[in-house]
Design a protein around this nucleic acid. Structure first.
Lengths: 276, 276
DNA sequence: TATACAACCTCCAGTAACGGGAGAGTCAAG
DNA sequence: CTTGACTCTCCCGTTACTGGAGGTTGTATA
């Protein structure tokens, strides 16, 4: 019978931890004085404690260790837990390696530009979204006004209100000098009739969407595109669908046209991506 | 001015998180209604929030992000933090890779023996320890009794009490058929005079000590040695000093000699190791 | 105008695995 | 009998939030 302090020294496990393992049911003292509450351990409990430490070392949580220590556990079940743990660790290693890549990219950018980039790219998950849209080919992006007039006019006649910021989908895979395939999209709720020109459907969720925010006039939007393209390539992704340009905050000129040069404009650029 | 719910939808950051960032001082709403407490945000706060998310993605804690967002931060300081983070991630990756090795070893052992090994090896840090010792060459380990008689006799005459379990140091690097160089050690406190045969000194701390526990008679101790040797090799370590055999719990026969066959004996085997 | 209901607020509890410390009781030696 | 080392329980703090209770506020509809 040894007291907790000595057992702690023998095992080099802190008293606090031993009490915690007692409470968790991982390692109960062989006896506890009913009046003083003193815990008394035995030497032959050291192997069990050692096993707890070994399993902790493999990264199991104490709860998992509790299950692993149940005597009724077969070698087969143990194998299953270990295989699972193996997969989890592999996952962690990969995630950390990717994170390291991203840190490296930040560092390279600071070296290059001697300052921090204006643009921060993050991966987000995007929910499915129901939209009404008009798609067409226009010479260049700033000339997509006709698509928007068509869409907004239709929705106004149907007395439909948008439920989130509108955005454009850019369907061309490559950069083009002219003739862009653009879809003007307006998120909606409830039932809206489609027409020949106006489609109504739900964009599916995107698990890995690379996103960045541009704060400034549309005329400088290309900087944001450059930054996100660089990020996507440097992090070993590739785009796998049309990019979105979300108009979070725009101002209008008197004539109902969007102000292309307002410096307060806020736009989000999104690209669905996948590991290359 | 947008309310928290809309800001949350725009940024795809939960309301709870936004309130938390407010509380942390990472992202204060541009205005808070003094009477209702409602938080009001602006579109141009999205870039800052995006930066927070990007830094979080690099694995910085919110506190670190707070410091990184201070406008007075130079590119040089930013570089420093990033370099530091880089080193931390590299460390994590390596630790996880080593952990993966250990899981693999467990799995291999289960495959081989179709059950779990009796021995769990863990790395521990061992504090410096002051000892009195007698070192000598004996034919085989079970015949080290003479060393112990000499040491215990001397300590008894000096009226010294041991303060921790006694142990042997095995100074031979390789396995030997006969003539083992063994040091019998007794931890002590306070000042003890040395003699020609009895040395008194402090064993230095060992940062990485591979430890396992043997529960059973001394006659089966070799199993523990086999297990720990296998573990050390499989995990890419090598021994870098004399092994310790710590007698945590022994019983004596009537004649004052240690009982070599008591199944309740508990012994710990330790080897200082370093990455090969 | 009344009312429903969505949105917002603050505060509290819980998460994993303990470490630190308070305040009180216990044990062994001198 | 006293000192000092040891032990007990209980509570708080750690991270980055999530979930929920209980109470306001804002807006849309009947």
């Amino acid at each position: 019978m040894i007291r907790i302090g000595d057992f702690s020294k023998l095992s080099r496990v802190s008293i606090k931890a031993l009490r915690f393992y007692d409470e968790m049911g991982l390692l109960k003292p062989v006896s506890v004085d009913r009046f003083t509450g003193y815990r008394y351990y035995e030497f032959d409990q050291l192997p069990r404690l050692h096993r707890i430490l070994a399993l902790k070392d493999l990264g199991f949580s104490l709860e998992e260790i509790g299950r692993l220590l149940e005597s009724a556990l077969s070698a087969e079940q143990m194998r299953g837990m270990l295989k699972l743990r193996q997969a989890e660790i592999r996952q962690t290693v990969q995630e950390e390696a990717e994170r390291l890549e991203r840190v490296d990219l930040w560092l390279r950018q600071i070296e290059q530009e001697d300052s921090m980039s204006k643009y921060d790219v993050v991966i987000k998950k995007v929910e499915p979204i129901k939209i009404a849209s008009v798609r067409g080919v226009v010479p260049t992006p700033p000339q997509q006004g006709s698509l928007w007039s068509e869409l907004e006019g239709y929705l106004a006649r149907q007395r439909v209100r948008p439920v989130a910021p509108c955005f454009s989908l850019y369907h061309d895979d490559e950069y083009k000098e002219k003739d862009w395939d653009i879809e003007a999209c307006e998120p909606i709720a409830g039932d809206v009739k489609a027409s020949e020109r106006v489609k109504v459907y739900t964009l599916p969720a995107v698990e890995t969407m690379a996103c960045t925010i541009h704060h400034g006039p549309f005329t400088t939007l290309s900087e944001a595109y450059n930054a996100i393209a660089k990020w996507i390539e440097a992090n070993g992704y590739r785009t796998c669908g049309p990019g979105r340009e979300i108009y979070l905050h725009v101002t209008e000129q008197g004539n109902g046209m969007v102000n292309q040069t307002d410096p307060e404009t806020v736009t989000e650029i999104q690209f669905p991506v996948a590991k290359a």
